[in-house]
Design a protein around this nucleic acid. Structure first.
Length: 521
RNA sequence: GGCCCCAUCGUCUAGCCAGGUCUAGGACAUCGGAUUUUCGAUCCGAUAACGGGGGUUCAAAUCCCCCUGGGGUCACCA
């Protein structure tokens, strides 16, 4: 069997769609599984400015997930160029071939005419097919029109009366009646090709063996097959994989629905995280980066492999129980046959469970490395943290333990980094925990105990606390919450004695003093 | 609306092709319990599904038909 060649063909839109990434991943996996090649081709037939800029986030997403391409932008390859905008001549010659063979024709009908035919068909409830009026023109007339530069497009002549059949690797046998298919425009008036045609020409020219793409392309497969046949190409294997749906819905995940997604109960948290985290690190908000973009996950601090693993499980499974898989395991076991037929939703909860798992596999040093850029960006540590700062970060990360799920969660622990006099308090918690009858007095007495704990570490602090609580004849809970809110400003976080140890004696005392002073009007 | 695709717990899925071992398995979520100074994590447990109707068969989640429901797509976008 010849070498497997798969491709992903993004158009430069300025961001990488998470659903598209899943499809790209499947292409990459199949190439890697078979020892074949994965090609990146840029579909920029729609005249666009700033292709390079619009492509950058897409290539960055592939790099982030470490999905290397064997041919494509930046690296080239034997079947280049890999930008459709640079392949004009190739399309031109394919069109000529079809024109000469009378398998395509120049259509001089205006867009308005075609549009009204379409509407008429719609009204009469019959399928719209091309009028083919231009086919009645004599060769001489066509020549004259062309010489006059009369505006026209080139359409592919669909062979009516035939059946187009496809054996799709994931769908099985699918067929269409070609008589119901309108002649697709393959070239615009200005000589630029349309997607459906460019894809056919390029897939053949680049010797793509497997076209693995989302199910929404199933309906433009019949004309593509017809064109492949007209051009004398060997058909690639088609695998139409299910599209990715929005959380909790059965509808395709789409950037047009962003507004709705903000209200989606499953999605909402991700938008809220964006609005909390991104402003702190100078990356805008959920308006600039949202969870349908791969970049969102990178910037919120997901592990690439958590996203990789999670994406691989959307529409594919290894067996009846395996969830956590290394890249090697996935590559080794990935087959097209095990791709599921029905659409699968992106589930933020599940994504987080993958993230928690893989984050848990990281060493403290690795976590510190991932967390540091956030602290620097948020100016919670210096631009180039010194040894003492790094040591402090390490201790905080250690104390945080499994609470640190994504790297940006470190920003939730900002109370360990800010100065004592600017610590912010959660007012509801502060009121609840600090104002109880007798609490301030007890806190003051405990503060005096704390002042002489030696050494000032979690163990001795806890001992002192227990002893104090006993002597006061109260339960630990009667005081512990007050101490917590006094020194961290919050009701949640690592163990209190660890928190105190982390802050050190002086800062702990400062914070208790400050909390007490806030109580006096 | 035409054409096409899809249908197992709330979600992602295993099982279906080669019918029995499926009183349908796993994971996420949810709810309980244990642990705990809070949160988180962890451990234990529970709830929870074959869309409906006909066939075929000794036997159907698995095969066939119909219905219903959901979705995709119908551009000189990709």
């Amino acid at each position: 069997m010849s070498e497997v060649r798969t491709r992903f063909a993004p158009s430069p839109t300025g961001y990488m769609h998470i659903g598209g990434m899943r499809t790209a991943l499947f292409n990459w996996l199949w190439a890697r599984h078979t020892g074949g090649k994965f090609i990146l081709r840029i579909d920029d037939t729609d005249r666009q400015r700033n292709v390079e800029e619009a492509l950058r986030p897409i290539l960055a997403a592939f790099r982030w997930l470490d999905l290397g391409w064997d041919e494509g932008p930046e690296i080239g390859g034997p079947h280049g160029p890999y930008f459709q905008s640079q392949r004009g001549e190739i399309y031109q010659s394919a069109v000529q071939k079809l024109l000469v063979a009378k398998k395509a024709y120049r259509d001089f009908e205006t867009p308005a005419e075609v549009q009204s035919q379409r509407e008429a068909a719609d009204k009469e409830k019959r399928p719209f097919i091309s009028s083919r009026k231009s086919l009645e023109l004599s060769d001489a007339e066509i020549e004259r029109f062309v010489a006059e530069s009369r505006p026209h497009v080139i359409r592919f002549l669909v062979p009516r009366g035939t059946t187009v059949a496809l054996h799709d690797v994931v769908r099985g046998h699918v067929e269409w009646d070609a008589s119901l298919i309108a002649d697709p425009v393959i070239m615009r008036g200005d000589g630029t090709p349309l997607y459906n045609f460019a894809t056919v020409v390029d897939d053949a020219a680049m010797e793509i063996t497997h076209v693995i793409r989302a199910e929404e392309h199933l309906s433009n497969t019949p004309p593509q097959i017809l064109m492949h046949q007209a051009l004398g190409h060997t058909l690639p294997v088609f695998a139409h994989v299910p599209f990715v749906t929005a959380p909790g819905t059965t509808k395709k995940l789409s950037k047009r629905e962003i507004k709705k997604y903000r209200e989606n109960p499953k999605f909402r948290k991700m938008f809220e995280d964006a609005d909390r985290v991104f402003p702190q690190i100078g990356l805008g908000s959920s308006e600039t980066l949202n969870p349908i973009m791969v970049e969102y996950y990178e910037k919120i601090g997901f592990l690439p492999h958590a996203v990789f693993n999670s994406l691989a499980r959307i529409g594919w499974s290894l067996d009846d129980r395996t969830e956590f898989m290394t890249r090697e395991t996935i590559v080794e076991n990935f087959t097209l046959e095990r791709i599921v037929k029905n659409p699968a939703g992106l589930d933020p909860d599940k994504l987080y469970s993958f993230q928690t798992h893989w984050m848990g596999q990281l060493s403290v040093e690795d976590k510190v490395a991932r967390v540091l850029p956030y602290l620097i960006q948020a100016e919670l540590v210096g631009q180039s943290p010194d040894a003492a700062e790094r040591e402090h970060v390490t201790r905080v990360v250690q104390a945080l333990g499994e609470r640190l799920k994504v790297a940006s969660d470190i920003l939730e622990a900002r109370d360990f980094f800010v100065a004592d006099d600017v610590l912010e308090y959660d007012e509801a918690t502060f009121r609840k925990r600090m104002t109880r009858e007798g609490t301030p007095e007890r806190l003051r007495r405990f503060r005096e105990q704390l002042a002489s704990v030696e050494p000032f570490g979690p163990g001795p602090i806890e001992e002192a606390f227990r002893a104090f609580v006993d002597s006061e004849k109260i339960k630990p809970a009667d005081l512990i919450h007050a101490v917590r809110v006094a020194v961290t400003g919050k009701s949640t976080g690592p163990g209190l004695f660890e928190c105190l140890g982390l802050l050190g004696r002086q800062r702990s005392l400062n914070r208790i003093d400050r909390a007490l002073s806030r109580l006096r009007p």
